[in-house]
Nucleic acid binder design. Structure first.
Lengths: 228, 228
DNA sequence: TGACGGAATTCTGCATGCAAAATGCTTCGG
DNA sequence: CCGAAGCATTTTGCATGCAGAATTCCGTCA
């Protein structure tokens, strides 16, 4: 029998704040005023401050002693760094998945892949990305390594702040789909080394798209302005 | 001009607690009583609780709602999972280092390597490990990827809780030194792919030594006992 | 007009207080 | 003798209070 546990307040707050940061509601560099956020959530400062410490250790906010918390800003270099690490984690995820995934789970990934293709055919970028993420999550789950899962998700949260959905050219989209075809093939063959390489390259290309987009330029400009 | 900032109390506490956990002063499964720790550190509960939240998000402690915090226990499986991820991070670290390291930094790694060999020759295991860590840190620094550095260090803290220093056979030690020779060679050649592979294998072997040691068995037994 | 200085205000960091949950202890019943 | 129920104690979770640092505002002076 499992114990019934209601999520504690500070955890709830961590989740809410993380979402607000990832969704851009709290933009990079935004000052996080304790009083304002307390009123917004209807809580006292204690759980809020605990939440800020956790988010800081995740890298989503930076704490300036005696000067409060700010949403972490991302430079182009930060993005590249994160994608490099993400590439390594995805590669490992793919390798382990090939060793451990069940036939049934492979078919489930195949199903997700076709769902994704349907959104691709309809040029439904938002749902395409949803399924895309679902596929990567399924591979991660098949890898069955909780430590990897934790680090992956933490980093994914930081990366997802960069909303690169709008900035994918038709050509890049076509290419991404071709890459996903090969990813599914490698997984089906249980070709761990191949899948690892494909996933890593897939992420490298994603990174290129992101750093080429205006979004990053805007963030960088803002960062420089704030620094000066 | 840089602002002078004294580390805040909760950060200090995070550091102290982390050290106590890593050094084994707070053994796996140990209950962390807020009042006791507050008296020990001479602080109030607020900064202590903030520190516990951070350590929980790092994975060093687990928070049981309304039931306090405990030092995370490690099963054999946890160790293997952590080493796998560590292998991926080290491999990336090696690859990036080969691209970015300066000739001078390579020579510094070589110097560290020879220092390590000196301790090896004297069978000074403790200092051997110190230099060993210094070499890996130097490679990590050369990789020059702060995101990677952060994740590496966080995971290194969790892994270091397993004190496998005492449990290395003469044969394994010899082999580890040979591996380090090859690691240095690959770095000197700036053979990124090769260095990545060597580092990963090096960690796999380390993992084998650890899981073969009695230390893990003891932890596992304790875990089972506590669970039953 | 603009720059400087200092007081007033705001905000953060930590300590403490209070209610609810959990734990332990005692006692009672089978 | 063992187990369960009930009460007392401990402990956690959150709110609030207070001191010091940081920021803002405003008046003064060049």
């Amino acid at each position: 029998m499992t114990r019934i546990v209601r999520a504690s307040l500070h955890e709830e707050v961590v989740g809410r704040l993380r979402e607000m940061i990832v969704e851009g509601e709290l933009p990079p560099g935004e000052r996080l005023n304790e009083r304002e956020l307390c009123e917004l959530f209807g809580i006292s400062r204690t759980p809020l401050r605990e939440a800020l410490k956790v988010l800081a250790s995740e890298g989503l906010v930076v704490l300036l002693p005696n000067r409060g918390a700010r949403v972490t800003k991302l430079t182009r270099r930060d993005i590249e760094d994160m994608f490099q690490v993400m590439g390594a984690l995805e590669a490992l995820s793919g390798e382990l998945a090939c060793e451990r995934i069940t036939d049934g789970a492979i078919e489930e990934v195949r199903a997700l892949h076709y769902e994704m293709l349907a959104h691709y055919a309809r040029r439904d970028l938002r749902n395409y990305f949803k399924l895309n993420e679902a596929i990567h999550r399924a591979i991660l789950a098949a890898a069955d390594n909780p430590v990897l899962t934790g680090m992956y998700q933490s980093l994914a949260g930081r990366i997802r702040r960069v909303r690169f959905i709008a900035n994918m050219s038709r050509e890049r989209w076509d290419e991404a789909v071709r890459e996903h075809e090969r990813i599914l093939e490698a997984l089906s063959r249980r070709d761990g080394a191949g899948l690892a390489r494909l996933l890593r390259e897939h992420l490298e290309h994603k990174c290129e798209v992101v750093v080429a987009s205006d979004v990053i330029e805007a963030v960088e400009a803002e960062t420089r302005a704030a620094a000066g």
